[in-house]
Computed example of a mutant assay.
Amino acid sequence: CLHDVYIVLLSDAPHSTIYTRDVVELGVENHLICHVTGFYPAPVKVYWTRNDENVTEGTSLNVPFPNKDGTFNQFSRLSFIPQLGDTYSCSVTHRALSQTLTRIWDVEQNQPGIGPAVFCGLGLTVGLLGVATGTFFLIKGNECN
């Protein structure tokens, strides 16, 4: 007696993020990284663009590696020299996606602003004032004894 055998084709759609390897300095070589995670089965295909033009030179894609839940991770890398106004994208295709998954990275939007420097300076000033005040009261307390 033959039994019907059903094969269930399961798949999980990937998620992706795009980020730089190093702090961005205009005109200095860096790497954009597209991290693709949570997909099954492996692999994914990754495509890069610069200002809406396909880029293949300076790209790499590692082999997929498994997560503990049975899904996979994969990294793609693009060597680039950031120039103000450039826009890069990482597009991912996989059989569980109904459309291409694209992440965009703009050079001008990812430049550090003045905010972090102001907060750092303010924090340092408040910290030094606290140390000075504590030292003053420590000396005054010792004089009273």
Rank of each mutant, 00 (worst) to 15 (best):
residue 8 V to T: 14
residue 123 G to M: 03
residue 90 C to M: 03
residue 134 G to E: 11
residue 34 C to Y: 03
residue 6 Y to L: 15
residue 72 F to N: 04
residue 120 C to P: 01
residue 122 L to P: 02
residue 46 V to N: 03
residue 131 V to S: 01
residue 113 G to D: 08
residue 124 L to A: 12
residue 93 T to P: 07
residue 30 N to A: 00
residue 61 L to H: 00
residue 127 G to Y: 04
residue 102 T to Q: 09
residue 64 P to Q: 06
residue 23 V to M: 06
residue 69 D to A: 02
residue 72 F to V: 07
residue 35 H to L: 08
residue 48 W to C: 02
residue 40 Y to S: 11
residue 98 S to V: 14
residue 21 R to N: 04
residue 79 S to G: 08
residue 101 L to F: 04
residue 39 F to K: 05
residue 71 T to V: 10
residue 40 Y to M: 07
residue 22 D to Y: 04
residue 122 L to N: 02
residue 61 L to G: 00
residue 7 I to G: 01
residue 102 T to V: 14
residue 137 F to Q: 13
residue 65 F to K: 10
residue 125 T to I: 12
residue 117 A to H: 12
residue 69 D to C: 06
residue 81 I to G: 00
residue 55 V to L: 01
residue 3 H to T: 15
residue 40 Y to H: 09
residue 123 G to V: 04
residue 71 T to Q: 05
residue 131 V to L: 14
residue 47 Y to A: 11
residue 100 T to R: 12
residue 115 G to W: 13
residue 106 D to P: 01
residue 4 D to W: 07
residue 49 T to E: 10
residue 107 V to A: 05
residue 7 I to K: 13
residue 59 T to M: 02
residue 4 D to Y: 14
residue 29 E to R: 08
residue 47 Y to L: 14
residue 77 R to L: 08
residue 108 E to D: 15
residue 22 D to R: 08
residue 54 N to R: 11
residue 44 V to N: 01
residue 5 V to H: 13
residue 3 H to W: 14
residue 100 T to V: 15
residue 119 F to R: 11
residue 102 T to W: 07
residue 42 A to E: 11
residue 84 L to F: 12
residue 36 V to D: 00
residue 121 G to F: 11
residue 108 E to G: 09
residue 117 A to L: 13
residue 124 L to S: 09
residue 116 P to T: 10
residue 67 N to S: 12
residue 12 D to P: 03
residue 128 L to A: 12
residue 34 C to A: 02
residue 67 N to V: 03
residue 93 T to H: 04
residue 131 V to T: 13
residue 137 F to C: 12
residue 49 T to Y: 05
residue 32 L to M: 00
residue 110 N to R: 10
residue 116 P to M: 06
residue 131 V to N: 06
residue 69 D to T: 04
residue 12 D to K: 14
residue 29 E to G: 06
residue 112 P to D: 07
residue 88 Y to T: 02
residue 16 S to G: 02
residue 134 G to P: 11
residue 89 S to T: 14
residue 4 D to G: 15
residue 52 D to I: 05
residue 89 S to N: 09
residue 90 C to S: 01
residue 70 G to T: 05
residue 69 D to V: 05
residue 81 I to F: 04
residue 103 R to G: 07
residue 66 P to E: 09
residue 131 V to G: 00
residue 13 A to C: 06
residue 79 S to I: 12
residue 33 I to L: 00
residue 59 T to G: 03
residue 134 G to S: 11
residue 33 I to F: 00
residue 28 V to R: 05
residue 24 V to E: 06
residue 121 G to N: 09
residue 98 S to C: 07
residue 61 L to E: 10
residue 9 L to K: 15
residue 113 G to T: 15
residue 136 F to K: 14
residue 84 L to D: 09
residue 115 G to P: 00
residue 57 E to P: 01
residue 98 S to L: 11
residue 61 L to Y: 00
residue 39 F to Y: 15
residue 68 K to Q: 11
residue 105 W to Q: 03
residue 18 I to Q: 00
residue 110 N to V: 04
residue 97 L to S: 02
